[in-house]
Amino acid sequence: MDSREQLGMGQSGMTDEAATPGQRSDYGFAHASEAEFARILDFYQVAWEYEPTVFAILWDLDGNVLESFAPDFYLPDLELFIELTTLQQRLVRKKNRKVRRLRELYPGLRIKLFYARDFRALMLKYGRAALVSELSGTLGQVTSRQEAEASVAPGDRLVGLDRSSNRSGDGDLGPSGSNAEGRPNHERRSRASRRRAVRKAAASTLRAPAT
């Protein structure tokens, strides 16, 4: 039994989105660093899934989900979730809080937060230090803040889901319009819309995890 089975994934507080193991070209990464990380995992033949699971982390008194969190990667063979962040400290604190909350609510789950310094060290190790700045922070962001916010309905903001195109409530928005995969942004928005619709539907059924 893997950690996801132990947690009763898809039944109490979590949902799956029928993700398939890694083929990077099939994914609309929200950030260039995620695409690079996926390439590294591919290189070393480590199976991965991109944002396969949405974890509810905050509920109102009626049991409705107020906040959720979708870690960037799941490595099924290692039973490990990974959240990447290459952004400024303000957002790191927010992610730290979410990861802390996730660990409290789902103690059997293994998650590693990969900070900007970790990503930088990885790039240095692989002789790609020159790419760090363009793959990090807001420079590596896929959609602009205006585009992302304009595409999100007010209801989405209320429940804290998917504010940044295809991110689930992480709130990592930036000014760049570059696309990590080289695809047009309208294609990404279309994929993001599909993801958002799935997550909205999922979030409406999310409840507190069994304790």
């Binding site: 591919d42 033949q45 692989y126």
Partner: peptide, 14 residues
């Protein structure tokens, strides 16, 4: 082989 270690690497796999 190491990731990023060989620019001519075509397969993209170790």
């Amino acid at each position: 082989s190491s990731y990023g270690g060989n620019a001519t690497e075509s397969s993209g796999l170790v």
